[in-house]
Lab assay of single mutants.
Amino acid sequence: VTTYKLVINGKTLKGETTTKAVDAETSEKAFKQYANDNGVDGVWTYDDATKTFTVTEMV
């Protein structure tokens, strides 16, 4: 189990959250659901070296 981080650069929501998951794909699903639940829709990137997802909304 690995800890993954999500950085949110939204128009109205900014911040970070973490989750523990067995792999990046599992954490990505959880993070995308979290973003969707909070009305964040944007461009996703992933940095495997830091286990960090970033979602950026276009303004």
Results as ranks from 00 to 15, higher is better:
N36S: 14
W44F: 03
T54A: 04
M58K: 11
T56N: 08
V55M: 04
N38S: 08
T54G: 02
T12P: 04
S27T: 05
M58N: 11
K14T: 09
E16T: 14
D37V: 09
V59L: 12
K5T: 14
K51P: 00
I8S: 01
T50N: 08
T56W: 09
T50R: 05
A30Q: 12
L6R: 00
K51F: 09
M58D: 12
G10R: 04
V59E: 14
T19M: 15
A35V: 09
T18C: 14
K14I: 09
V43M: 09
F31A: 01
G10A: 08
W44Q: 00
T12G: 09
M58E: 12
T45L: 06
D47R: 02
Y46V: 00
T18A: 06
W44C: 02
D23W: 03
G42D: 01
T18N: 06
T26V: 07
K11A: 11
V1E: 13
S27F: 03
M58P: 11
T2E: 11
M58S: 11
T26Y: 05
V22S: 10
A21T: 05
K20P: 05
Y34G: 00
Y34H: 04
V40K: 02
D41N: 13
M58G: 10
T12E: 09
Y4M: 00
K29G: 05
T26Q: 12
W44R: 00
N9W: 13
S27K: 01
K11M: 12
V55D: 00
L6M: 04
K11H: 12
A49K: 11
D37Q: 11
T2Q: 13
T26H: 09
N9M: 13
T18Q: 09
F31D: 00
V59W: 13
F53Q: 00
T54S: 05
V59N: 12
T56P: 00
A30I: 15
G42S: 01
V55P: 00
E28G: 09
G42C: 03
K51I: 02
W44K: 01
V40F: 10
E28P: 01
T45M: 08
N38T: 06
T50S: 10
V1W: 14
T52H: 01
A35F: 03
A49I: 10
K29T: 07
Y4P: 02
M58C: 12
T2L: 11
A35R: 02
G10W: 06
Y4R: 02
G39Q: 08
I8G: 00
V7G: 00
D48M: 08
K29M: 10
T2A: 10
Y34S: 01
D47L: 04
A21M: 04
M58Q: 11
D37R: 10
V55S: 00
E25R: 12
G10F: 11
A21D: 04
K20F: 13
E57C: 06
V22R: 11
K20M: 14
N38P: 01
A35Q: 01
E25Y: 12
T54I: 08
K51L: 09
V7P: 01
T54Y: 11
D48E: 13
E28Q: 11
V1D: 10
E28V: 07
T45Y: 08
A21V: 03
K32L: 07
